[in-house]
Design a binder for these strands. Sequence first.
RNA 1: CGGAGUAUAGCGCAGCCUGGUAGCGCACCUGCUUCGGGAGCAGGGGGUCGAGUGUUCGAAUCACUCUACUCCGACCA
Length: 509
Amino acid sequence: MAAIAILHGLESITGRVPKLRKTAARPSVCLSFARFCGLHFCAHCAIGFANRIRRHRGPSMRLSRYFLPLLKETPKEAEIASHQLMLRAGMIKQQAAGSYAWLPLGFKVLNKIVKIIEEEQNRSGAIQLLMPTIQSADLWKESGRYNAYGKEMLRIEDRHERDMLFGPTNEEVITDIFRTYVKSYKDLPLNLYHVQWKFRDEVRPRFGTMRSREFLMKDAYSFDLDEASAIQAFYRMFVAYLRTFHRMGLVGVPMRADTGPIGGDMSYEFHVLADTGESAVFLDKRLVDKPIPEIDTDFRSDLTPIFKDWTSLFAATDEMTDEAGFKAAVDPEHQLAARGIEVGHIFFFGTTYSKPMKATVTGPDGQAVEVQMGSYGIGPTRLVPAIIEASHDEAGIIWPVSVAPFEAVVINLKVGDAESDKASERLYEDLKLEGIDALLDDRDQGAGGKFAAADLIGIPYQLIVGPRGLKEGQVEIKHRKSGERETLSVEEAVGRLKRLIVPQRRDSV
RNA sequence: CGGAGUAUAGCGCAGCCUGGUAGCGCACCUGCUUCGGGAGCAGGGGGUCGAGUGUUCGAAUCACUCUACUCCGACCA
């Protein structure tokens, strides 16, 4: 108690009490001191204590104190909807050609996407690590790619005039890590992945983060003793990818793809269908509604049936087929010619890197065997615009709940009105308490601007609180996607939102 | 890398042709009135006109050079 008194005394002396009262800092300090003193409450703050505990859960997301630079007009450099909307919604800022800063709202979405990717990679048995962005050229000289890669690779010289590079991909580094530590076939299979920034000095970056020079990539690398088990590793990633894109509210259609200079015939690209996609794609439309492998899929079992099931239906990019071939292969009633955004690419390439880099393990017969490898990429910084391309309207973005920067926004229509302030604060706190990722729009501005902002940034549910409804004890929920509005009592609102939101998180599908 | 274009306040633009020292809308700041779909009134702040060189008494404006960015094509998670 003495300590608390001293603390409050200091605050009084510095004259900062009124300011501190408005922040979370002071109650948490009080509580810490109270606990330190073995008390269950702070004598000084006893009034309204319960409310203060609530506020301590999670960061405060009050729009009046957030950093969300919205643009009313569309910057002229943006051509496609996703790029325009990401700029207008204050998600990104261009810093140079193909180089973007991720502002808080954009970063929040990016992180949700990365989290889903990590969960599904982990579920499939892959193990996360982190490799550097700047690599030594030596490994690339060893694999033969230092000269082969061309100007797309950003080459750097350090102070000792050593050749370095900003990694465009990580096969060399992961192979080096593997060969250093893994010596026995008993340690296989192994799949290591990371989520790390890449740089490819594209001739022409465009469409915002859809094709940027610096981009985030999840890249996984599998190592197996023989081709048969390597193919199983490939299937595991195939299934993980189906699940990953589905959880983001996307249909990621696997398509036979060109392996390019890597060779071999095991390569699939995952495409999100969108009018602005860069590739022409041809597919059997039954793939679009095909149920994805469920959460209890056993990744230690033989996944061949799932792979065969999915790949039995026709799907290919224009690199692999043409309209004539497509029409000959698919029943007319199932034909779908569309455009696609490539959001993932999986390769099996055998010993392409293990051979020149001498990545071998000792097999059961005591002989050294070059490991069979595959690599598997997903671009989170491309997924953000891909999701927007697939889901937006005239008013702005329509986020699927699973990747939405906020699941719900409480819109206080009349800031300064005692009833409206109190009810919206309370509803916001209750949503947080129920584990909903909520935002409170407590900015002192007109209702129209708030509705427009909520629509633009695409929050799935708007909880509209204003004096008019409160007179009847009512609030309104607007569904961003359908435009549907429902009026309900203040008491029912949080429960209703929770029942709407939780199933759409897709974290248990 | 081939072709085309743009550069004037944070964003969107006018002014350039015909040279005379920069303007509009939004945003921002102050005050008042407002507040259920991007409010109104009044006042205010902010610009080496992408950079450099040249022509000229005088350059955002004319000429040349450079740079950055965007679009179309070939390449890519």
